[in-house]
């Protein structure tokens, strides 16, 4: 398994994100970028290898914990669900074309269509 990169929409006014900031975004604690743009979280299904690795290595959570956090947000009306992509390729395209979007992909797959904001050590 290669290391993961966290990617954002190319217009995102952000250079680098800390692991803490990424956690805050994926746990839906932070919902907007510094310039006020709404953050749109993109994810793969919980069973995808890339998702499992991202949860454990970048967020420091097991996938079932992240799922529980999202479910509680959705079913208490205190926030919104992430958007699901069916493949890493689709996820990259969604991030590239959705203003405010953030997601994660294999480091090898990053290209100029998205902005890399974090690379796992």
């Amino acid at each position: 398994m290669n290391a993961q990169s966290v990617i954002a929409h190319p217009d995102a006014k952000v250079e680098n994100l800390t692991q803490t900031m990424i956690r805050s975004i994926f746990l839906m604690r932070t919902t907007e970028w510094e310039d006020g743009t709404q953050i749109v979280v993109m994810t793969l299904e919980a069973s995808e290898t890339l998702h499992i690795a991202f949860c454990k290595n970048v967020l420091g959570l097991f996938p079932y914990q992240l799922q529980q956090i999202w479910d509680r947000i959705i079913f208490t009306g205190t926030g919104q669900a992430p958007h699901y992509a069916t493949s890493a390729d689709e996820l990259k395209k969604l991030v590239a074309t959705t203003p405010g979007a953030i997601g994660y992909i294999d480091r090898e797959d990053t290209d100029g269509t998205v902005r890399v904001v974090y690379v796992e050590d």
Binding site: E32, T37, I39, F75, G79, Q80
Partner: peptide, 13 residues
């Protein structure tokens, strides 16, 4: 349930 986010600071659900 339904939720709306008309702008980034406000959610209605």
């Amino acid at each position: 349930n339904s939720s709306l986010r008309p702008f980034s600071k406000l959610t209605a659900s």
